[in-house]
Design a protein around this nucleic acid. Sequence first.
DNA 1: AATGAATGAGGATTCATTCAT
DNA 2: TATGAATGAATCCTCATTCAT
Lengths: 205, 205, 205, 205
Amino acid sequence: MEIQKPTRAKRTRDPDSKRTAIYEAAVQLFTDQGYENVSIAKIAKEAGIAVGTVYRFHDTKLTLLRAMLEGVEDAFVTRMASDWAFEGTYAERIEGMCHGIFEVAEDNLNLLKLLNMTTDVMFTDGSLPGDRIQNQIRIMYTEAMNVGASHQGDARMMAAIAHGMVEGAIVRWMRLGAPKDIDAASQLALVFKDGFMTKEASQLT
Amino acid sequence: MEIQKPTRAKRTRDPDSKRTAIYEAAVQLFTDQGYENVSIAKIAKEAGIAVGTVYRFHDTKLTLLRAMLEGVEDAFVTRMASDWAFEGTYAERIEGMCHGIFEVAEDNLNLLKLLNMTTDVMFTDGSLPGDRIQNQIRIMYTEAMNVGASHQGDARMMAAIAHGMVEGAIVRWMRLGAPKDIDAASQLALVFKDGFMTKEASQLT
Amino acid sequence: MEIQKPTRAKRTRDPDSKRTAIYEAAVQLFTDQGYENVSIAKIAKEAGIAVGTVYRFHDTKLTLLRAMLEGVEDAFVTRMASDWAFEGTYAERIEGMCHGIFEVAEDNLNLLKLLNMTTDVMFTDGSLPGDRIQNQIRIMYTEAMNVGASHQGDARMMAAIAHGMVEGAIVRWMRLGAPKDIDAASQLALVFKDGFMTKEASQLT
Amino acid sequence: MEIQKPTRAKRTRDPDSKRTAIYEAAVQLFTDQGYENVSIAKIAKEAGIAVGTVYRFHDTKLTLLRAMLEGVEDAFVTRMASDWAFEGTYAERIEGMCHGIFEVAEDNLNLLKLLNMTTDVMFTDGSLPGDRIQNQIRIMYTEAMNVGASHQGDARMMAAIAHGMVEGAIVRWMRLGAPKDIDAASQLALVFKDGFMTKEASQLT
DNA sequence: AATGAATGAGGATTCATTCAT
DNA sequence: TATGAATGAATCCTCATTCAT
């Protein structure tokens, strides 16, 4: 085994390019091999930087993962809130949101896979990945229920079920390898509307 | 290797008691700390046996996990198929199955958590934990669709969505720590029926 | 992993058959996989007996190996002494002995391989496998030298060289997989005579 | 895996000093106790470094051993080829080579012992330790035979015998603990010339 | 800031040996 | 006698993290 001679430290113009490189390397590797099977050394190598540099951006391997997961969650929550804020009937907004969800999913395919591979990574506040998405769903559900657009029910449980639906739809859709199929969103929307919304949902705004 | 003197070996009357002890220790520890954070040594200690004994029952740590996961899957699939075979309308059978699912869930609380923590543990046939459950759902959905009891849709996607619902309902319900609440099953059944079944479902048998 | 039900202990008519079975299994396995890569369990299984039974015949894994090695050594030493005791000139006896050696080699192919794989297994008296063979050679050399049939030289060193020749011839011949080629023995004899013996060797008896 | 806090790391000026330390520790320990009885931990301790550091220089325990063995082989082959290339009669060159061999042997006493202890360690190309030396002998033998300086014979077998002689001479000489005795080389050369060379060898160049 | 050598605890797995049955 | 379950020390190797350069 040949030992490498140390290379010179290079000053990078854009420090964010390193952060990005780490992020992308991590997404790729975690997704391909699973969190536990990827070492920081691998990530550093893939990112083209030194091990120590990874630690300049992330305190531990776990916080790196968390940061990544929070990123996807953010994307979903933001998009869902945004779609939900559109004008239109509840039915239309549900429909729009389902499509929005799948769009975000398409943009974050790898990370999503990761999100699903690591359900047991708890955040420091005791929450789990997905919790914020579920919470957003709960807010929307509650609002809709209050105006009679969705069926009565325990908001938490309903949100959990709805969230599960979304997760199930996305994850399996990913595995089937058909990310372009827009019908997935429509189909989800259909079940969503039938399962949670009242007839009035198509009238109420 | 240096010569080793084993200490006293005890002969157990019931060899299954060891298997059980391993199983229970593993469930407990995996659930509490996550698969990756539990060593075989911990399991052995918790089970009150020697490390080597664990390996008499399970070839590797991974096969131990897989055996456990397959166990839960079996329980669910068996129960679902059994409930589905009951006489009655499709609506009734869905209702019954939802309750059945939660009963099984109650009997396998810890394992369930585990099932959800380890989505990335692939079986030797390339399938993932949950696949068999999802498959069972697909079979039932297809059957119902063929007789007009459930909405038209892509069977795979519908099954994925339905499976997600179930998983979402159970997992979150577990975290809320209310396993006695029978309403969870009812609520799930409600959404299930509204989301997937046609009006005719309450007539058809 | 299925656990086997214990089978009944069988009373064997001939206890030596077990000893033989162990011996043969050990030869085969050690030869194929190397001493360190063969467990007592493997040997027992191959021999069709229980682990504990192996220990009825051999105190430790190492003594088992030693017993085997001593067996081959015995075969060689015995044959060499026997061939050497024949009537005839020294040259003829050398010739005969070389053929004898290869005959023994043919009868102990596997063990020979083993003998060569495990040069570092010291016997309790501090000797190494091969030492007794070398010693036998030394005796013969000394005798021949005393009567002027072989060149003058340090008996130990000469024996070592001669022993090395034999070992080299046999081992490589084994690897070339040509155990039927009688010329190997002749060739060895030729070098032997030229290298060690005097012209008078073909006259002296 | 649990989080670990590494202790102080020291930066060595000369990275080769570690490689050397590993090498020397390994030679010593392997030689004394045998490859299988020496753990990487022992080597690291003896070398005064951490276990992980050993792995920076050698991928596995086996490649460490192989690297060592190849080193000795190289030394022998190089020296033999160099001595053989000298001007002079074949007889003189044989004589010179024998002395050269023993010089190399003196410089690699411990490694030699190791070389002989581990005949069963196959290299990735299927060859065994010693094969390259034997091959070099074969080349020289063939050349000499072609010009009539050595007896006719199968080159492979002759090389094997010659190689065995050398090995026998060196190994046993090592065990007798007389590395300073220059006669060993002379004696080997004597047998070599008598055993393999023709009378013409002292004339031919 | 960047580098990557060094650390060593930790973990999965093996296996010689014992001994209750 | 024979069996094989049970033991647990020992081993190889990995990798998160630190810090001297």
